[in-house]
Design a protein around this nucleic acid. Structure first.
Lengths: 332, 332
DNA sequence: CTGTTAGCGCCTTCAA
DNA sequence: TTGAAGGCGCTAACAG
């Protein structure tokens, strides 16, 4: 009742050996006399026994956990991925341990090291790589070493030769979006392109640009955040908005920031400028005007990551993108 | 390089004993010859040594982990709390493992059991209790037993005699909000009250009601979600909206759903009905009209939880609430 | 099918 | 200060 009961306690209470207790409680191959088994289960319940997973991990050499690294858990993009990872892990009886990189490559590397200390069964890295490959070599070395010891690593939205990957369709979606918008009659495009060194951001901006009938009028860089979207939009507004009739933000949170900036400055959206984003986070439909965007099922991306790691899914996995036209881009 | 280096490997490489290696790498009391210490550190770096935290946990009897239980990580309310917990834990060198209850009491109990298996140093439960006390006894027993073995448990937004608690000011905030709105001239109040069996939801609804100059015209229950807010608002609309000039949703996601319902039905907000929420999630200011709400610093609530658990903070902690008036309640 | 017995990797007295 | 050795709780051969 008070102290944590150990397997040994359970075994003794049930009048069986440690091994038998282990086998009836946690063992994989079930070859235990049913009567013993029941006695053990009863004793375990009686004593409030909880297997010490650390001890199990030590004995087995690997723990029933999946380690998840995200850039920022308050970002709906990552919380959706996390939800998928947690759900899928849970279905497989795995625990999830999580850390936040804050989009800092050094910190990311350090956290991977830390997380490795848990000897997790799988390590999922969500979040785009930097274009300049900052710290890439060290990270890859760390991941390689982890994989070499039997760990599975899965990257979400990050290309790699050596690891399983859940690709998010950035180029296809951005291209399709550009085509749709052009079809709607827009001709003056500005892009809130996000961080110049973030692969995802650049892929989206580049693909969007490539699919445009005319070159964009303006491209402004900044962080991947709501506030950066706000600031970027302000910059465009202060630039006069000349020839701009549509602003594409490379993700929804930036787009939502842009809408806020327009509202604060009293500029009509979509009347004066239309706005589009990417990801289809849940609030995209709840802002006003409702946001045109590209839907990506992030939650299933997270789930797919653990599926890949556990072999219940065959790679490579690519999460499709679908253009969602809403009120923020009515066409002209 | 390939296999995971163990402490023993490091010790051998450095030409010292296991104990010395342990002391220079992870030991608390620092009483190691500086030269040895350096040799050990060098060897560790050389070999890419990562301490096996499971083994440490087994040896020490507790792991450097805080286990966090939330209802739904995609809900901004909980992701903010999670962010605070993760940040604070990280500052203390603790890992965070997380699980999602989906607001199911049985599942919650099961997850607490599972998490206990990790022998975490602290266990944080975020999310309101049910008013009917479903499964309360079993949960408390489980928590008591955990505490008895030296674990720290902290509850966020949940009352308890025996455990540390981070209180969220639901009654004060809701009362203040009601007073503000009454002062603005509103007189016809409807409440989207959320789940009838969730303490937080009921506290807010009750305190709001109590501080009103007149009884509410309508109270509709439902889930704690955006969609339930939408559905609830629809219900009010279909009821004719008679005498209603303000709708208070007990949390922001519901309020945002309500706003969406109004928009979809072509009813002007705040012209015809004003709307207010609770929590001040980040999108509250980005919807249109911007949402009047009650700000609660959820991230610091999460951080406070680990502070309490680690004793770096004295309890009881109460997170204050502050009324934030925005465009959704202009006054009449 | 059951029990005995090594470990797993690490921490921590206990002598030296 | 250092090293040897026992033990943490559990699993997995290995014999019976």
């Amino acid at each position: 009742m008070t102290g944590n009961a150990t397997l040994y306690d359970v075994a003794r209470a049930a009048g069986v050996s440690l091994a038998t207790a282990s086998r009836s409680l946690n063992g994989s191959a079930r070859k235990v006399n049913e009567e013993y088994r029941q006695r053990v289960l009863a004793a375990a319940r009686e004593l409030g026994y909880t297997p010490n997973v650390s001890a199990q991990a030590v004995a087995r050499g690997s723990s029933a956990t999946v380690a998840l690294l995200v850039s920022d858990i308050t970002d709906p993009y990552f919380s959706a991925i996390a939800a998928g990872v947690i759900r899928a892990a849970d279905d497989e009886g795995l625990n999830v341990t999580m850390a936040v990189t804050e989009r800092d490559a050094d910190r990311e590397l350090e956290l991977v090291r830390l997380l490795r200390g848990q000897r997790p069964r799988v390590l999922v890295l969500a979040g785009s790589r930097f274009t300049d490959g900052t710290g890439d070599a060290a990270l890859v070395a760390e991941l390689d070493s982890f994989a070499a010891t039997g760990g599975r690593v899965v990257l979400i939205s990050r290309h790699s030769f050596s690891f399983d990957t859940v690709a998010i369709d950035n180029t296809g979606g951005a291209g399709a979006l550009a085509a749709s918008l052009a079809g709607l009659g827009y001709r003056g495009f500005a892009i809130l392109a996000g961080p110049a060194n973030l692969v995802t951001a650049q892929d989206r901006a580049a693909a969007f640009t490539a699919a445009l009938p005319v070159p964009p009028v303006a491209v402004v860089h900044g962080a991947f955040s709501r506030d950066a979207g706000y600031a970027g939009m302000l910059e465009l507004i202060d630039g006069g908005l000349d020839g701009i009739d549509l602003v594409f933000a490379v993700n929804d949170v930036m787009a939502i920031g842009a809408l806020a900036a327009l509202r604060d400055r009293g500029i009509e959206a979509p009347g004066r400028v239309a706005v589009a984003g990417y990801d289809d986070i849940s609030t995209a439909r709840d802002v006003s005007p409702a946001l045109t965007t590209v839907r990506v099922d992030l939650e299933s991306a997270g789930a797919a990551a653990v599926g890949l790691a556990l072999g219940s899914l065959e790679g490579p996995v690519s999460i499709p993108a679908e253009v969602i036209l809403r009120a923020s881009t009515p066409g002209r």
